[in-house]
Amino acid sequence: MISSFFSKAKPIHLVVVSVLLLVVFVMTKMSTIAEAFSVELFFREAFLFGVCLASLFVLDFFVSKNNLTKKNSYKILMFGLFVAVLPESLLNSKLLIANLFILLALRRIISLRTSKDIKKKLFDAALWISLATLLFFWASLFFILIFLALLLHSIVDIKNWIIPIVGIVCVAIITASYMIVMGVDFTPYLQGFFDVSFDFTPLNSKRIIVAATILLSYGTWASFYFMRNIKHQLKSYKPSFILVIISSLIGLLIILVSPYKDGSEFIFLFAPLSIIMSNYLEIIPEKWFKESLIVILILVSVMNLML
């Protein structure tokens, strides 16, 4: 049974989910790329697949390191299946890379619970989110997590509140300096950079509607159990679980305001939703129900890939 196979954390699980991502990535790209095959195209797409794998490994690392789930591989299974359910999430290279930067930032933000190297972690988190913002402006909403983490961990030293701003300024100065030195025109870069859209017409396809319904239904249902479970966590871990919930809400907000309405904007929701679903799968006593939830995702994934 699938749920039993992933109930323990083993290296083979990363291999299995990596193969799943490869299949989804190749099938999605084959159906969407119109340009002729070339060496440049191969290496560009290989790099983007590397970004997908890196996102998977970063998620697995910081979730396991900070005990956001028990010692199982449900979180990477969920991440792989969410991508398979909505393969359009792989189509926008900027959002794909920005999501990796956000995961690297989350790794640093969540680890603030240890109270070690706080200043370095805050600077790194601000740096990664700033880099993500350069690719996709609405990724800047994740800056909320940094300051919320400071509040939740009762970090009151004013220096620590200034450090994230220093990280933002550093990235801004370096980026502006590079563009000036290289003679890059600011106008084309900033054109459409701050755009927002509430037009959901482009999402009006059977595949995206089915995928979005499944994702939001799973996420909403599991979130009730996830939030109820927070009060049973150790005091030092509660802020981390609250940050996961806020991350998912930010992911939803990005879906609402993003100028991209093609399914690619859902990528920011997958990581926090994977953590939430993993926690839910851990507490389900009925094996048949747990198995059913996973099988439904697999069936929807196959259906969407075939459409």
Rank of each mutant, 00 (worst) to 15 (best):
M1Q: 10
M1W: 03
I2L: 12
I2H: 03
S4L: 14
F6S: 08
S7F: 04
I12E: 09
F25A: 01
M27G: 06
K29G: 11
T32G: 07
T32K: 09
I33Y: 02
E35N: 14
F42I: 14
F42N: 11
R44W: 02
E45F: 07
F49W: 02
C52S: 13
V58D: 02
L59N: 02
F62K: 08
V63R: 00
S64H: 06
N66T: 11
N66L: 07
K71C: 05
K75V: 12
I76P: 00
M78A: 15
G80R: 00
F82P: 11
V83P: 06
A84E: 03
V85A: 09
K94G: 06
K94P: 01
I102L: 12
R108P: 10
T114D: 15
I118E: 10
D124Y: 01
A126P: 06
W128K: 03
T133R: 00
W138A: 13
F143Q: 07
L145W: 00
L152Y: 08
W161N: 14
I163E: 07
I163R: 04
P164H: 07
V166R: 04
Y178R: 15
M179Q: 12
M179F: 06
D185R: 08
Y189D: 05
G192A: 04
G192L: 03
F193A: 15
S197F: 00
D199G: 05
F200V: 14
F200C: 14
P202Q: 11
S205G: 12
S205C: 08
I209L: 11
V210T: 13
A212G: 05
L215A: 00
Y218G: 11
G219C: 11
W221M: 13
S223W: 03
S223Y: 03
R228Y: 04
Y237I: 10
I245M: 13
S247F: 00
S258R: 04
G263T: 14
S264C: 07
E265Y: 03
F270V: 13
P272L: 13
P272V: 01
L281D: 05
I283P: 01
P285E: 10
E291Q: 15
S292N: 05
I294M: 02
I294Q: 09
V295L: 15
I298R: 00
V302L: 15
